[in-house]
Design a protein around this nucleic acid. Structure first.
Length: 260
DNA sequence: AAGTGCTAAAGGGGAGCGCT
DNA sequence: AGCGCTCCCCTTTAGCACTT
């Protein structure tokens, strides 16, 4: 009996007695002719109603195909890395290989992880979103703009002149009694100014912070709690003072990671 | 053209070590 | 015990040549 398998490029093929066959044609009488995938080989199978009718020819080539169980295991591996994207690929490989060894013993030669690694990572990449090359190309899926209570967390996504993203839950904003204020462009601008403090020369940080803080408190006195928190944690704190988080002198010089 | 095998490298995190 | 530092391993990605 033959087995249906998936070829490297996706289409269905037949695995029969250590050889692969591809579908060549379907005849008017309902039979299908499958030919050996080796181009110089004329061997073929005639199949009707999923039953093997005739085997024609002799293979004129050597055969180094892996066994059907190995082929199915690799296919299972490739499907699993796509369906379970949160689990490390090496862990998936080890688990599936372990199961295979338990069921089939240790005699069969199984492809090493190094031989499958690139294929598995490329397979997974087909089901994951593309990495953005700039902040403007960053796409936020719905799952990333809601919290565990399914509340909308993205309150600001300003595209120009620079991309500004702001996250906070409605519940948290209501606790500050500021939900309406956060819709104002002037408030978004001052919050962005505070977030941009690490990019200023260090001797201008304190003045810039107080400018932004004063503007926020003038708009609404309830911003005072937020302003006090930032000042206490990042301006006057000896542990996280501006020397620690200022990046002005490292701009364009410091090597960047890909966490852009 | 698409898929694969192989290599090099980046980045994160744990282990080990010495110091306080 | 806690902290900081270095080294090394593991995971992941990218690039290139080759195969299908």
């Amino acid at each position: 009996m033959y087995s249906l398998i998936r070829t490297q490029k996706g289409p269905t093929a037949i695995y029969f007695e250590n050889n692969f066959y591809r579908l060549q044609k379907q005849n008017k009488n309902g039979t299908k002719r499958w030919v050996c995938t080796n181009r110089s080989c004329s061997c073929s199978l005639l199949i009707k109603d999923e039953r093997l009718q005739i085997v024609r020819g002799q293979h004129n080539h050597t055969n180094e195909k892996p066994s059907l169980s190995i082929i199915q295991t690799i296919d299972n591996l490739r499907q699993t890395v796509c369906s379970n994207v949160s689990k490390p690929i090496t862990q998936i490989y080890n688990e599936i290989l372990s199961t295979y060894r338990q069921n089939n013993g240790t005699a069969e030669l199984v492809p090493m992880f190094d031989m499958l690694r690139s294929t598995l990572y490329r397979d997974r990449a087909t089901v994951l979103p593309k990495l953005p090359h700039s902040l403007h190309r960053l796409i936020l899926p719905n799952v990333f703009i809601k919290n565990l209570y399914n509340e909308n967390m993205l309150f600001c996504d300003k595209k120009r002149p620079s991309r500004i993203l702001g996250f906070a839950s409605i519940t948290a904003i209501k606790q500050l009694d500021l939900p309406d204020e956060l819709q104002k462009e002037s408030v978004k601008r001052q919050l962005a100014n505070i977030l941009s403090l690490p990019l200023l020369p260090i001797n201008k940080i304190i003045a810039a912070f107080h400018d932004a803080a004063d503007s926020l408190v003038i708009i609404n006195r309830n911003f005072q709690t937020f302003v006090d928190y930032v000042e206490k944690t990042y301006i006057t704190s000896p542990k996280f003072n501006p020397v620690n988080w200022n990046h002005y002198n490292t701009l364009s010089n410091r090597p960047r990671t890909n966490n852009q």
